[in-house]
Nucleic acid binder design. Structure first.
Length: 730
DNA sequence: CTCTCCCGCCATCTA
DNA sequence: TAGATGGCGGGAGAG
């Protein structure tokens, strides 16, 4: 929680510039505070200059819209005062300064820790000197992490910007404001671009689209992934590893796994086409890797993808993997991508225990099924991945076998992209429009965004849920149960549970969100699609919390799964694919509903907020799917989810409440649950964020307070009413 | 030790 | 050619 708050603050601070714009008393105050800190630093004290600089950087938003400055420039960024500039320059020179800045940065959800923020904040407020020391002391790596950086980045922009407003992102500005090298921004932007959250408009300029089209994009990626048969590939790889490696492979995986799987499918991609030969850099592009990586999740039944498997698949060589170095490099890149995706709350880190031990993996916590409606909706038209589509449609199958990569395909894509780029860059850049205003708006938006984000993050999830909605169910269902049978003990429980829970929650959330929230904002998109399917569930869920109507769930699940894994039924997909579902899971699976119901029941029972929170934590814990050990997990799991809901509820409440408050107030638990559910995605973030709070747990009370902090954002949100949970419809 | 992943060199592309 | 992009992997922090 704290973290969130802080982050929010930080974010807010960024927008400080907003000040001018926003003056909302509330916001202003918060902002001011933050701002003060940030600004203060720069402005005031010379000595601390470096620090100041850092601070400034951090806070400073994109002031400089325009030109792209080089790294050096960035530091300069925001000169609140002339002196500040000098300071900045100086700071630029010294790394120490940077570090300081970094401290200020937010933590990434996963690893984050609040302390830092608080500390930093305090420090700032207090003394520069002191701060300096502290800061210098710890510019821990975490603070510099790409994930954190990405969060900051995202905080600057509204998740669901109004269609009208166009936000232009100046790489230089961002780099400066965030106090990082431009190179880092590229990493973030490339991943965001792969999901179409941003697009390159011109040199050094990107335009922010937000998550409006995310469902479509994901849908498309899912399709592509299916076509590529990534699932099979994953299964295959896993098997291989297992076999090769030895270990029990047989045992666990066997169930599902089919070596046999689909022979066809299986092929490895490997060498795919050397065609790739040509591959230019782009083939290796982070964007493509990112898309493929996402595809793996979307295709995976378990929604869990281990890094090594992903790396192997991404490398074409799945088979051999001879190049160890290559593999290592790929993994590094995947970490980069994963950090960004984590910041987007689309995945979260977990550990999968395998024979040999635990392996780092990531679990998809984003929307899952956009399938249903989307198809039509989304369709090809989607801007996002034209290339991929091409591939898919085009060679897909071949490629599929070849797998992955097929750069060639990508190449085509890339080409297109480039073209676009050129086009965009050149003349068009209409996007810029706004610099002046744009900036302004951005900031405001950013504030709102920020506040909302953090909160939202939680809430956002909700939003997601609402918009994307469908995914949830799919995830749930599919999850595990149905398709895959068995597998890792590790995964088993937790993942499934999570999924299920999440799904359930999601549904719930969606409904509530839609109902209450939607009304507000008009989440429209998601809601539209979702509504149809989900609402019922959601409704049911929300009300009865206790149990969900089975039918829907199953329906969803089945559908989803199918959607996800086409051939799953047959061995091909099923193989176990990437995921092995645990036996435990399976069992439940069939009765996914049951779980849900149980969970809900549990929730009801538990309802205590604290519990909820804890549960969330647990979730995180669960993240570490790893532990096979716990038998209790199942129970835990259930609780966690519930807890999530709960936990989320509080947060959201605060957030939402502002907006939604009425509804929530009324419904009390139900509302919370609903919200919670909405958050489904949040859990991760929430959990992470919350962890600290959770620890406090009793914090419930407190935590809310923290959230209160958030409210400022909320306030801002008020300014941006849409955003929050509701999210603007676009 | 392993896992993560920051950092920034430098190749490549673009204008 | 300068500047923009971004691949890549050394190496170090964190656990």
């Amino acid at each position: 929680m704290e973290v969130n708050c802080l982050t929010l603050k930080d974010l807010i601070s960024r927008p400080p510039r907003l000040d001018f714009a926003t003056e909302d008393g509330e916001n202003a105050q918060k902002e001011n505070i933050f701002v003060d800190l940030s600004r203060m630093a720069p402005k005031t004290p010379i000595k601390n200059e470096p620090i100041d600089l850092s601070k400034q950087k951090i806070f400073t938003p994109e002031r400089n819209p325009i030109t792209p400055v080089k790294l050096v420039d960035r530091q300069q960024v925001e000169p609140w005062t002339p002196t500040a500039n000098l300071k900045i320059l100086i700071s630029a020179a010294s790394p120490d300064i940077r570090d300081r800045e970094k401290k200020k940065e937010l933590f990434r959800p996963i690893e984050n820790k609040d302390d830092v923020f608080t500390d930093s904040l305090q420090l700032d407020a207090v003394d520069d000197s002191a701060v300096d020391e502290f800061e210098k002391q710890r510019p821990s790596r975490k603070q510099k992490s790409l994930g954190l950086l990405c969060q900051k980045f995202l905080a600057r922009y509204p998740s669901y910007p109004l269609s009208t407003e166009k936000t232009t992102i100046s790489l230089d500005e961002v780099a400066v404001s965030l106090g990082v090298e431009r190179r880092r921004i590229y990493d973030i932007v490339n991943v965001l671009e792969s999901l179409h959250l941003v697009s390159r408009v011109a040199k050094n300029q990107y335009s922010w689209h937000g998550r409006h089209s995310l469902p479509k994009t994901l849908r498309n990626l899912q399709r592509l992934g299916e076509k590529q048969k990534y699932e099979e590939q994953m299964a295959h790889l896993q098997q291989k590893e297992l076999n090769l490696i030895d270990h029990k492979v047989g045992e666990r995986r066997r169930d599902g796994c089919p070596d046999s799987q689909d022979p066809q499918l299986l092929d490895f991609p490997e060498p795919d086409c050397p065609s790739s030969s040509a591959n230019s850099r782009k083939d290796k592009s982070l964007k493509i890797m990112s898309q493929k990586f996402v595809m793996l999740f979307l295709v995976s039944k378990t929604k869990i993808v281990t890094l090594d498997v992903a790396a192997k698949i991404l490398i074409e060589e799945s088979q051999d993997m001879p190049d160890h170095s290559k593999f290592k490099t790929k993994v590094r890149r995947l970490y980069d991508i994963a950090n960004v995706l984590t910041s987007l709350m689309l995945i979260k880190k977990v550990h999968v225990t395998e024979d040999r031990g635990r392996k780092p993996a990531f679990k998809w916590i984003g929307p899952v099924d956009f399938s249903s409606t989307d198809d039509d909706l989304v369709d090809v038209s989607t801007p996002v991945l034209p290339e991929l589509k091409k591939e898919i449609y085009g060679h897909v199958q071949f490629c599929a076998k070849q797998k992955l990569a097929r750069h060639s395909s990508f190449n085509s894509e890339q080409a297109s992209e480039r073209t676009q780029r050129k086009v965009n860059s050149e003349p068009s850049s209409p996007y810029r429009q706004k610099q002046g205003l744009g900036v302004y708006s951005l900031e405001i938006g950013s504030l709102a965004a920020v506040s909302r984000q953090k909160m939202e993050d939680n809430s956002e999830t909700v939003a997601f849920a609402s918009q994307n909605m469908m995914p949830l169910p799919s995830s749930l269902d599919p999850a595990a149960p149905l398709p895959s049978p068995s597998v890792d003990s590790e995964y088993r429980v937790s993942p499934l549970c999570h999924q299920v829970l999440s799904a359930a929650q999601t549904d719930l959330k969606a409904l509530p969100a839609q109902n209450g929230l939607t009304g507000q904002g008009g989440v429209s998109l998601a809601s539209m699609a979702l509504d149809v399917e989900h609402q019922p569930q959601a409704l049911a869920a929300a009300q009865p919390l206790l149990y969900v109507p089975p039918a829907p769930l199953f329906m969803l699940c089945g559908g989803l799964q199918e959607g996800l894994s086409p051939g799953s039924g047959s061995g091909s997909g099923s193989v176990g694919g990437g995921s092995k579902v645990t036996a435990a899971e399976q069992p439940p699976m069939p009765s996914g509903q049951k779980r849900l119901s149980k969970e809900r029941r549990l929730q009801e029972e538990e309802e205590e907020p604290a519990t909820k929170r804890q549960c969330r934590d647990h979730e995180d814990g669960p993240l570490s799917l790893v532990m096979p050990k716990k038998p209790s997990d199942s129970a835990d799991i259930a609780s966690p989810k519930t807890s999530e809901n709960r936990a989320s509820a509080p947060h959201e409440d605060t957030h939402m409440n502002g907006q939604l408050s009425a509804a929530k107030a009324v419904s009390g638990k139900a509302t919370t649950n609903g919200f919670v559910s909405s958050e489904w995605g949040n859990p991760c973030s929430n959990t992470e964020i919350e962890k600290p709070s959770e620890e406090n747990e009793s914090t419930k009370g407190p935590s809310p307070l923290q959230y209160l902090y958030v409210q400022p954002p909320a306030v801002s949100s008020s300014s941006d009413p849409q955003e929050h949970p509701v999210h603007t419809p676009r």
